[in-house]
């Protein structure tokens, strides 16, 4: 018998017990129309309560980004806009290996396996955004971050992002430049909160234990530079209608 089965069962039981203990059923936000919308239209693909996948098989099965920390991750204005005109953020889908086919020179993204995200009306997008802003998982991690306002030259930013840390291997900094297994970063400046970017770079596994982004032990100064570089890329909005 596969030894992982009973382990998984115990972990599930543990998670269930903890969720009963931690989340009393009288959450006020649960009554709002926005939260109802999230539960009815989003929760089948996005986890509203967490935790993040604890095994790689759960990771493979995840259909969309976790939302239990959406209020600490996303910028509200971006959510409102994106939900009305969704554009793919992960070029190879939620779990890249499920959307590849062999190519003559390298593995290629099999576009036929990718599905577009549903679009919402403006009114629903606003309701959803407001409800998402109330989901504040990992407040502790966010409180540890302080991103000072600042800027970085394009050449220095590219040096840090590509040559010093190798982020370009997996992330695109332009619609046709960079890797494909991670989310594109050329709209991340308007999509993500700076403290989230900083915290996620510092310790991706604290947010998502099994994610395929490594912890590269990036120091504080580099993290600040990366946040400023990612903010400087920001093409958010101008790509809203591209495929």
């Amino acid at each position: 018998m596969d030894i992982r089965m009973p382990i998984r069962a115990v972990l599930l039981a543990l998670a269930g017990l903890l969720s009963i203990a931690i989340h009393p059923a009288d959450s006020r936000a649960a009554d709002s129309p926005g939260m109802d919308l999230l539960k009815n239209r989003c929760a089948s693909c996005h986890s509203l309560t967490g935790p993040a996948p604890a095994s790689i098989h759960a990771l493979w099965a995840r259909k969309g980004p976790d939302f239990f920390y959406a209020g600490n991750k996303y910028q509200r204005s971006w959510i409102v806009s994106w939900l009305q005109h969704p554009v793919r953020i992960r070029p190879a889908g939620m779990f890249y290996a499920d959307h590849l086919k062999p190519g003559p020179k390298r593995d290629m993204v099999d576009e036929s396996t990718l599905r577009p995200h549903v679009a919402l009306s403006k009114a629903d997008a606003i309701l959803a955004a407001d409800a998402l802003m109330t989901l504040k998982g990992h407040n502790d991690l966010i409180k540890m971050e302080h991103v000072a306002p600042g800027s970085i030259s394009k050449s220095m930013g590219e040096m840090v992002f590509d040559k010093f840390l190798g982020c370009l291997a997996c992330h695109r900094t332009d619609p046709d430049y960079g890797g494909l297994s991670g989310p594109e970063l050329y709209t991340a400046g308007s999509r993500l909160r700076p403290e989230f970017i900083a915290s996620y770079i510092r310790n991706p596994q604290a947010w998502d234990p099994k994610i395929w982004m490594p912890d590269k032990h990036v120091n504080d100064a580099r993290i600040q530079q990366l946040v400023h570089y990612i903010e400087s890329l920001n093409l958010g909005g101008s790509h809203a209608s591209s495929p």
Binding site: P102, D107, S181
Partner: peptide, 23 residues
């Protein structure tokens, strides 16, 4: 499949989906 294949390829042949722009 989860961590290595993004660069080393699903077949392990070094031809992962990310390699086009890698220096």
């Amino acid at each position: 499949r989860t961590y290595c294949a993004q660069c080393h390829g699903l077949q392990g042949n070094g031809r992962g989906v990310n390699i086009r722009d890698m220096s």
